[in-house]
Every structure is written in structure tokens, then in C-alpha cells.
Design a protein around this nucleic acid. Structure first.
Lengths: 334, 334
DNA sequence: TGTATCAAGGAAAACGTTTGCCCAAGTATT
DNA sequence: AATACTTGGGCAAACGTTTTCCTTGATACA
């Protein structure tokens, strides 16, 4: 049997309340003698608290849920890492969940996390659906949106990246370099992230008086396979293009691969630009020009924000929103 | 306030015990009428159980801890994914922890997990230290070792990969292809994983009567930078080599990069072979020959084993050990 | 001398469940 | 008619903590 506070109390001939006070350093009214006795017994019995019981009375579990689409997508481990580092620093632990962008799973996990009494939730939603009050009723717990924006009253806060500017700068860079027929191999257009990037894309085009052609917008998934498929589509459509702007680096890497396999020279025949700046981006041939996102920092800041909400509940803040800047990393594919 | 079982009891005019029995489908002795009434009230009040309280009495949290060196190393997300998928299937959730191969952090997390009453722990240990009884006393909970082996009584089980054979086959392949001066850019030699691979390396050499030269063994970390450093060392030492066997794909990818930057042709001048078969391995130029590990399956099987131990505690099994096979994936770097 | 203050620590309720035991009434068996 | 099950459901302990309020004795103060 694990030793409990009761065992300590018995052996030290004091009451459980006293033991609890001492162990929690609320020992203003305890003599040095008893304190030391209790501490000694605790150590000897190898006591570790049962946080379940503690949480039951204190109403906090020091646990936060992290709901992500898919940890095997290289974008998310870094985000998770940032979250875990900050959480650990603040004394919280992280429960993690993969949704595969499946709304059902999202709901299931939110449910699970509320049952486990998580103090808060950080989520990258699959689609930009509203956080309905119904859902929030389910999770009577602060929620932070991360990476992907969505409407919704009742969301505790948001940590986002300025996708409009990120895309704008990327496209502007291509335009300055003289590319004019720029394909956008995008993620799902249901996502606000994608929408914002499309905005940026259009804005840059506008500025350079290049007409927008919606045939150049290809909608797909944030997955490696999509890169190959997209290039196929381009060739099938016999589209005349000289640059490809990709929804993320994973897509970009497979686009580069597919283009090279088709005999294209990069960047001479066609330029490629990615998004994220995952580690691998600099290692492919040629090294990938990309829009760097502060991924680690997003995770880190999200936890920071969430814990602030958890621990200072009645601050009068209308909206919490962190918008992080991207940075264009110019390598050799443009 | 969240609604509790008590609220339901009041509104339905029954006792809390009855509600509990109904909600848990232990309603052999309950009339249809009351059951339906209780269910209706529960739904109407939007009840979700508080698993803290439940766990306190049932002594199980349906939570397992996953302790890994670093989730941003592409090997581990896939393992984590396998673990999470199986866990979710079995009704468990996962708490995850990054140690950065720091023994202190390992202990801290084990402590944390026992305090949170995790039902079991899966760990990739940083170094092959024994699971001392002291440590197991801390964690009075089943522990599964995954990926990296270590001695120790009291370990609940192990899920490993046959690293000796994996390395053996890789080296044999190189030898058959005619390469003779084979460098091993290894991970830390304190790890049993590395040791086993070194065994395999030697065995293959032996079989082909190629003398072993310990200058060809370079010890480092399982990180991308190590690949670059290792190649530098090779050139500095002016070592005559025609093949490089790498401790993992991340290293291999940077080795390929470094070699190409130095003007070497791959595989004509020097062959490179990796380990893991991460997704990126097939996307670099030239596509990487590598030893595929069933990473996802390791995570999956570890959870399977752990939950079996948790739920059937008094089986009389002396040792649980799963040794998974690797597979040589031949691409274009050899 | 009487009273207020203070230090040290105990008692017990509370947190939200589960579960073993008990009881009452009805039904079946002898 | 007496006994034995069965059905339906209540009671209360237990899980391991925290925390509020009390009690007791001692000391200080007027």
C-alpha cells in the first residue's frame, strides 16, 4: 500500500490536519519539534501525496489538455514541446490528444478532458467552426485557440500567427524576383489560416497589378501526399506556372521532389516557397525558401496565457489575442 | 457549478447510490422506470462524471505516462502516435513528458506521474541505468521500457527492436555492394541500442573477413548537428572511407547533405545508410537507404502490454519482452 | 485577579464517487 | 401458513486530502 497522510499522522502521534499543514508549509502555528518529527516520518515512509484527493478538494488538477490534429506532422511536435516546457516550468502537466482533424474526436477529447478535470485546454481546431456555447458548456474550462483562428464567444484567448502578412511577404518576394504565374498549393479553404494566406496572396498580386486567376489556387490537405498530387494536377491541367507557394514545408518538400522528378530545374524553371520552416527545410536540395513560423513560441505562449487565465480568473480583460509575426527565410528555391 | 451525482439524485428523488449504479450500468436491480427517469435528469442537467472522485475510490485513473527524450525528434512523434492510438482505443489517456535525456527530469516525471496516480508508465530511458528498487519504490506502478533496453528487476516489460540484426543486415548489404571502409556514425555508446548495433556491425565485418578498425566508430548524439560534425571529423582525420552507417535518419540526412556539400557523389564516392525510415528519408536526394524500424508499432504494442499488466495484475509471467524486427529499405544512397 | 491574546494542534466537514450491506415488500415454494 | 427467494433501492463507509473552526493552556496586560 502507498503510504498516506494518515500513516504519517499515526506514527508521528499528531492529527492528519497537522500533517497536511506541515507538508504544505502552512505551518505558522506548528512547533519546530513537531514539524521536524513529521517531516522525518514522511521521509522515512517515503510519502508521496495523492494528487487526486488533493484536487478533489482544491478544485484544480494542474493539468492542461493539448488537442492537436496529428503529432506526427512535424509542425506539431515543436508546438507541443514549447507547450510542455512552459507547462513544466509552471508546475503543470500536459495531456495530449490527436484528432486527425476529426470533429468527433475533438469533441470526445474535450469531453474526456473535462471529466478528468483538466484546468484548461489548448486546441488547434480542425475546422473553423464556432465554439458554440453548447460545446463550452461541455467544457466548463478555459480554452485557448492556437494556430487556427475561429469565431466564438467564450473562448479564453487565441495565439495566432499573422498568416496574411506571412503569405503577402512570400508572394511579394516572388514577384520582385520576377515570377508572375504563382500557384498556391493550399490547405483546406475551410480553415481561417488558409483564408488569411489567400488574402495575403491576393494583396501582393494587387500591389503588383498582376491579375488574380483562381485556377492557380489548389485546395488540399496539409500532408506530404498532397504535394505530389498537386503537381500532378498542375501538369494535367497544362497550367503555365513559374512558382509554387505551398501551405507548409511538408507539402513544399514533396512539391520540390515531384518537380525535380519531372525534370524541372529549381529555381530556374520554377520557384518553390514553403511555410513553417521545419528543420528539414534547410536540408533538402536545394534548401527551401520558406516563411518561418515561431512554432515553439506559440506553444509556449499559449500555455503562459492559459495558466494566467486559470490562476487569475477574474481579470477584466475583454479579449486575449497574441498575433506572432512570421519571417521570410530566403534560401535557394527562389 | 458542475452538476454532480447528488444533483441528479435530488431531482430524480432517488439516492446517490442508485444514480451511480444506473450510470455505471450496474443496474441489475433497478426498475426500468427509475432508470429512465435518472437518465433523463442526467441528460437534462448535462452531467459529466468527475473522474477524480471516481479514481479515488476505484484506484485507477485510466491514465498512462509516456516519458520520452524529445518529442521534436521525428522518431518519437510516431511512437507517441502509436501509443496514443492504442491507448485511446482501450479507454486510456496519455500524459506526456520530455526529458531531453536528462536523468533528473526522468526522475521528476516519474515522481509526478506517481503523484497523479498514473496506472502505468512507458519510458525511453536516457541511459541504460538499472531500474533500481529505490526508483520503483517511488513509482509503485508498472513500467514498460521501450526502444532502449536496460537491466533491472521489477520492470514490467520491454518492447524493443532487434538492433543487432538491423545493423548486421545494413552492413552486410554494404559489404555485398563492395564497400569496405565503413564508418559508423553512432549515438551514445552508453546506450544498449548503440551497443547492439555495434555488435551487428562487427558480426557482419567478421563474416566478410574485414578487419575491425575502431577509428571508424564515431560516438555522438542522435541529433542532426552530429551528422555535420561527424563528417567534419572524418575529413579532418583524413580517414579513407567509402560508406557511412548512421545511428538514425536525422543524422544520415545531414551526413548526406554535408557530403554533397563537400563535393562527394552519393553513392558513387560514398554510400550512406540510415536508421528508422522516417518519412523524410524517401524525400531527400538521393532517397535514403535505411533500416526501417516499426516505430508506430512499438508505441502501440507498449501500450497494449502495459494495459494488459494493469488490468490483469496477477498473471504468472516471468518476463514480458517483445522484440520487433527491422527491415532494410534499399533506395539510392548505396 | 481577571481578562485578553496567542501559540499549538485537534476535530470534523467537505470534495464526488463507488460499493457492500441492509431492508422492505412482493412472489414463489413447501 | 410458514419459509425462502427476488426485486428495488436506500444507507453509509470509504478513498486521501484540505481547511475552517475549536479547544486548551500559557502568557501578557491592566
Amino acid at each position: 500500500m502507498k503510504t498516506t497522510i494518515k500513516d504519517i499522522a499515526q506514527q508521528a502521534h499528531v492529527s492528519v490536519g497537522t500533517v497536511s499543514k506541515i507538508l504544505n508549509k502552512k505551518d505558522g502555528h506548528i512547533s519546530d519539534e513537531t514539524r521536524q518529527k513529521v517531516m522525518a516520518v514522511a521521509k522515512q515512509l517515503n510519502y508521496t501525496p495523492n494528487t487526486l484527493a488533493r484536487s478533489l478538494v482544491t478544485k484544480q488538477t494542474k493539468t492542461i489538455g493539448l488537442i492537436l490534429p496529428d503529432i506526427s506532422n512535424p509542425f506539431f511536435p515543436e508546438l507541443a514541446r514549447g507547450a510542455e516546457d512552459k507547462a513544466s516550468e509552471l508546475g503543470y502537466s500536459i495531456m495530449y490528444c490527436n484528432t486527425d482533424d476529426d470533429v468527433k474526436k475533438e469533441d470526445k477529447y474535450i469531453q474526456m478532458l473535462t471529466e478528468k478535470m483538466a484546468d484548461g485546454i489548448i486546441i488547434t481546431q480542425s475546422v473553423a467552426r464556432k465554439m458554440t456555447s453548447e460545446r463550452l458548456q461541455l467544457a466548463r474550462t478555459p480554452i485557448i485557440l492556437i494556430d487556427r483562428d475561429a469565431e466564438g464567444e467564450g473562448v479564453g484567448g487565441k495565439v495566432l500567427v499573422d498568416n496574411l502578412m506571412g503569405a503577402y511577404e512570400a508572394i511579394k518576394h516572388l514577384l520582385i524576383k520576377g515570377y508572375r504565374n504563382i500557384v498556391f498549393v493550399a490547405g483546406p479553404l475551410t480553415s481561417n489560416t488558409t483564408k488569411a494566406r489567400l488574402e495575403g496572396y491576393k494583396r501582393a498580386l494587387d500591389e503588383f497589378k498582376v491579375p488574380f486567376n483562381k485556377d492557380y489556387i489548389l485546395e488540399g490537405q496539409y500532408k506530404s501526399e498532397w504535394g505530389f498530387k498537386a503537381v500532378n494536377q498542375l501538369f494535367e491541367k497544362k497550367l503555365n506556372f513559374d512558382a509554387v507557394f505551398c501551405g507548409n514545408d511538408v507539402i513544399a518538400i514533396s512539391v520540390v521532389k515531384a518537380l525535380k522528378d519531372a525534370g524541372k530545374l529549381i529555381p530556374e524553371d520554377v520557384a518553390v516557397i514553403g511555410y513553417d520552416d521545419i528543420h528539414m527545410a534547410s536540408l533538402i536540395e536545394p534548401p527551401l525558401t520558406t516563411v518561418r513560423q515561431p512554432i515553439y513560441e506559440m506553444g509556449y505562449r499559449a500555455v503562459e496565457m492559459l495558466v494566467d487565465i486559470i490562476e487569475n480568473p477574474n481579470q477584466d480583460i475583454k479579449e486575449r489575442r497574441i498575433l506572432l509575426a512570421t519571417k521570410l527565410i530566403i534560401r535557394k528555391t527562389t
